[in-house]
Design a protein around this nucleic acid. Sequence first.
DNA 1: TTGAAAGCGCTAACAT
DNA 2: ATGTTAGCGCTTTCAA
Lengths: 348, 348
Amino acid sequence: MEQQSPDLDGVGVRHRATIAEIARAADVSRQTVSNVLNAPHRVREETRRRVEQVIADTGYRPLKSAQSLRTRRSNLLAVGFQSPGAEPSPVLDVFLHALSTSAQTLGYQILLLTAGSDGAEIQAYTEAVVDYAVDGIVLTGTHTHDERIDWLRRQRLPFVTFGRPWGALGGHSWVDVDGAAGTRAATEHLARAGHTRIAFLGWPAGSGSGDDRLQGWKQACGRAGLPTRGLLRRSANTIEDGRKTCAAVLDQPRPPTAIVCVSDALAVGAWLEMRDRGLVPGRDVALIGFDDSTTASVIGLSSVAQPLPAVADACLDALRGQLGSEGPSSGRWRQVLLQPELVLRESG
Amino acid sequence: MEQQSPDLDGVGVRHRATIAEIARAADVSRQTVSNVLNAPHRVREETRRRVEQVIADTGYRPLKSAQSLRTRRSNLLAVGFQSPGAEPSPVLDVFLHALSTSAQTLGYQILLLTAGSDGAEIQAYTEAVVDYAVDGIVLTGTHTHDERIDWLRRQRLPFVTFGRPWGALGGHSWVDVDGAAGTRAATEHLARAGHTRIAFLGWPAGSGSGDDRLQGWKQACGRAGLPTRGLLRRSANTIEDGRKTCAAVLDQPRPPTAIVCVSDALAVGAWLEMRDRGLVPGRDVALIGFDDSTTASVIGLSSVAQPLPAVADACLDALRGQLGSEGPSSGRWRQVLLQPELVLRESG
DNA sequence: TTGAAAGCGCTAACAT
DNA sequence: ATGTTAGCGCTTTCAA
């Protein structure tokens, strides 16, 4: 028969020691306890030791709501992400995990905000800032004319975007992956392998990252003296569109022997179209995607991988730069462009 | 040239109206303002109107840290999820999104906690509860002898698990998907299609949900008078293991004509193995997976889909049941088992 | 180096 | 139905 012991895990999570209790137990004032926590150098060695001992014994941790009420800082970071709707982004969940993990080691917690539109996302940020006094915001999936960025700047909130401010002025911190470098590496790899007609399946003009990745292909073709005319197809980002544009490009009089895609979604569509035609990707036609999704690894699709943990860390860095002083002063902005990595598999 | 207007969005996010200001502007006491917000029925119609008008004009929203300091509630829910490491779970990110979206409509925010082990997750919960006074916890990915559940129960924290408490007593709220029903439906579908030898690729014994899904296959075979001997293979949850166990089961003297898998990871492995052998899944051998991952939809793999938005809503329901009164009293536990849906594609 | 006092914004308890 | 008082736990003055 077990003993009646209300709490097996030390003091237990429900008991809250207050700063006053610590002070009493250590025979100092509350203020000294606060100093031990927030400005240890101001406390005499011996006193500090004694207080720290009591803190350790009781498992005392300051209550954030009280701290926040006083200091207006919450150690909370909001990250907004919009529903990909149908197909979940292969990028965001890995990024989220990395961000949350790194944030926790820095003493921050992640408030997860979801929205269905830019307007809704702004609304969510508003509530997070007004209600919870979040210290900073991580915005994902930037696009041209991004009203979210405008809003954040107007409000002078500390924020960083995963994605460059396409077409905007860029007066803020951002972290992005060099998409052009990724498609350039993919195209160069194919050129080295002897391909002379390399097609590109892209997104409609005007999406920043889509245009960026397109440039990489164009540049690599230019440098290698390869043609691009008639080898570019644009479509929305669905598997079905990938099939169709792949079919279109293969049905040309002079079809390409290799295809680079702006995304894995399109590449997977192309992959399916090839299979249906009895073509083996990598043997008959080379194929390289972008994002290194799980699906890509499953079907042996070569792809360009984004260094998401590094992106997450850079985002936190940028945010901390803004949080250090009072408010985002220009000059504290960090702009980081990370290099992706070409992951080669059977298809290319 | 634009006018110098510091804030275009109403009052702007940085200006905080306090309850005192609202009270002054509406010519009532602070308490009355508080009542308008928290107990409107106690306020005279006309007074309420006036106060509400001021609130609307100023865009006033109570500060959570102050509310929380007073009431010990934060309107914060913590959700813990461990890194899937290599292959991101096809389930968790969709679940997270659904959970966050529903939580926001209920006035809750999601604190995202990541951990690499059960111990680390408990540590993260501790900090979330002690520091941020989270109101409740959503735990994902239950397993047998789950120390996280034991800990949450000992601490008497409001919580709900996505996943049944396999092997434990079950004195808490949980939401789960009826895995056995899913594999049963899959197996019955195959039996109706004329298959008489249906194999199952499962996980090692002892994983609750794996055993559960296995049972569904066994039951369906039993009812249909189909054999199971020699048709079960167990392995870890990797694509490579799926390949191997699929190969093993196909190399038998009397191979199956259909295969049901405990997960899409294994099913994808089986799918690849079939293709390498020149077999067309769905034509030569039927194949059905579990989880309805993006990959499954891409490659035309039939699969069992979990109703994740419904799971998220049920989790929130269960949590709200516990938050209503002070503390989780027995009888307030909700246990919800939701039905999955068989999604048929080319492979089955 | 330490302590005392004040107050962040809100709501529960009590008084009117 | 409304107002008054007190205090949640912490940190920022300021004084000793």
